[in-house]
Write a protein that binds this DNA or RNA. Structure first.
Lengths: 336, 336
DNA sequence: CTGTTAGCGCTTTCAC
DNA sequence: GTGAAAGCGCTAACAG
């Protein structure tokens, strides 16, 4: 039980000496005589009146609440995405219901159900479950980075394919002749799978033999990396590759440490490019963990919200891909 | 306008052939005959009924919504705090309204006002403004890490004083003889100011002359660090200190890079201990940026929520300090 | 234990 | 223009 004594519209009406409906009109910007309008406004001020969201929500079936469903807020990528979503929402007078589902299907579904009825006005989801079937078709929704059978829900993502190509092109440009790809993917299909397609495409284009580690993400990640490294050592200890495109900065960073731990020099012997553009301590001015194909997180968030609140839902593209960009992060050679 | 056709309690009552009130009772766990209860439950299932939060909120003046006001979600410390708050809330059937105020007083106040009326059931705040005066006294609130004139609001924080002492003690234990403190503080007073008190206390206790850099946080941070370093060089280039307690991991990490950049060896020549316990990429299994006095973020979040929902608000302590702990992070010598 | 009923505070016709 | 009145879906008395 919160404030029981908050002033209501009725109080404002009495204070202003007008009818209840008039107060409502003033608040909702419906034409009212200047005289009445200011009297109402005065009353609102003296009473410190604020409309009750719940009464309004009950009446209008609108809440101004948008649910953001992401795995967590610990991962810096999700964390900054959440931050930018909040900013975009705030600008539009919307509020953010943060739902960290931890990749747990039950929790995702619970949060989805919460939204299924009239609890939120829209959903931005980065989920693992195939949310399509759990959600009412009539609540606005946009999916980030994933795709589902249900192709009705608009999707937003980075141009992962172009990013994959870009990573390879960049490595070649910086002098690599044998770039490998190290991928640890989620069991759930998503746009990020296209990074591999981009890698393969670029290899083909440049007449290179693709060479990659392609595993499901798992706790034994480091073992697989170590194993991959062993398999690529020549008798003299030198490596058969000189460039690494890592599926994410996270993986790139761990591979970097592995290499340096074994005495290989980065970027002299091997250059590494990751993906995401995650910065140390999250600060925009801070260094990257590794050179990286950066996702435009802020723009992605902005686009998700823009699509979510689009007045004409029939006009929104089913897929929106935003461009990525390469940034130096210490694990590649400086450009000529 | 969301779902206009969602089933209501009335529909469930009709479907189950019982009265409206009975449905309400089943939903709210009020005793009802087994027969009726299951009929209602069945009806709920077939209709996919879910209670309308707004109608309920209007009636009960409860929303099950808790606002978390933090500067942002980019800073890994805030990000993990938010994550754990979400978890603690979810367990209790509460939802999280995420408010990133960016340290902008207007935004903080806007969010606080939002909560002032009957929009949320409680607030967890880590704000810069003195929120005390903007908030209705009758809405449950707990402040993390800050303190205000208004001492009525319960506060939760890490034991920063003990942490400051611990950092010094640890450095001494690991062989340091001259530990300095590097502090870049917020303009707003908070519990973290006690880290300095702890440092001074420990120095005194061990008969050491305190030696520190004490600045307001600013973009020129690196310049001040560089300058501090210069001032502590002997003619032969060696340093007059051999241990550094940094106000946060962030500052410790930057000082570490500065030292290494100038050829000093860490932890051989200088040992560094930061504060917070921030991990690379946020993962609990990941490495720290520097050896650190770690804040128990999860426990802090849990405690905030626990206090917020405490049935008897008159029983909650006005200040709750949780213990910190030292963890090795590569910038100190391994313990004997 | 069950059904009926009076609102919670607001928006929105609909007469005036 | 303005005011009166009918609910939105639910909970919590209160009778039965």
């Amino acid at each position: 039980m919160t404030k029981k004594n908050a002033p209501t519209m009725k109080d404002v009406a009495r204070e202003a000496g007008v009818a209840l409906g008039t107060v409502s009109k003033v608040i909702n910007g419906i034409p009212v005589s200047e005289e009445y309008r200011s009297r109402v406004l005065d009353a609102i001020r003296t009473l410190h009146y604020e409309v009750n969201t719940y009464a309004r929500g009950l009446k209008t079936q609108k809440t101004n609440l948008i649910a953001l469903i992401i795995p967590n807020t610990i991962n810096p990528f999700f964390a900054s995405f959440a931050d930018y979503i909040e900013g975009a929402l705030y600008q539009r007078g919307l509020k953010l219901l943060l739902c960290c589902a931890d990749g747990i299907p039950e929790k995702e579904i619970a949060y989805l159900n919460l939204a299924t009825q009239n609890k939120v006005d829209g959903i931005v989801a980065l989920t693992y479950s195939d949310v399509g079937k759990y959600i009412a078709k009539d609540i606005p929704m946009v999916v980030f980075d994933r795709f589902f059978d249900n192709h009705i829900i608009p999707r937003v993502a980075s141009d992962n394919f172009a990013g994959g190509c870009m990573a390879v092109e960049k490595l070649l440009e910086l002098g690599c002749t044998h770039p490998v790809y190290i991928r640890f993917h989620s069991v759930f299909p998503g746009e990020s799978d296209k990074r591999m397609d981009g890698y393969l495409h670029a290899c083909k284009k440049h007449g290179l033999e693709p060479d990659y580690l392609n595993m499901e993400d798992c706790p034994e990640m480091l073992d697989y990396m170590r194993d991959f490294l062993e398999r690529h050592k020549r008798a003299d200890g030198s490596l058969t590759f000189d460039g690494v495109f890592a599926h994410t900065d996270y993986h790139g960073y761990h591979f970097l440490r592995l290499l340096r731990g074994q005495g290989y020099r980065v970027p002299e012997d091997v250059q590494i490019i990751g993906f995401d553009g995650i910065r140390q301590f999250g600060g925009e001015q801070e260094d990257l963990f590794v050179s990286s194909i950066c996702q435009p997180v802020k723009q992605l968030a902005e686009k998700c919200v823009e699509i979510l609140v689009a007045p004409d839902r029939s006009m929104v593209p089913s897929l929106t891909l935003l461009p990525v960009s390469y940034q130096y992060g210490g694990t590649t050679k400086r450009e000529g």
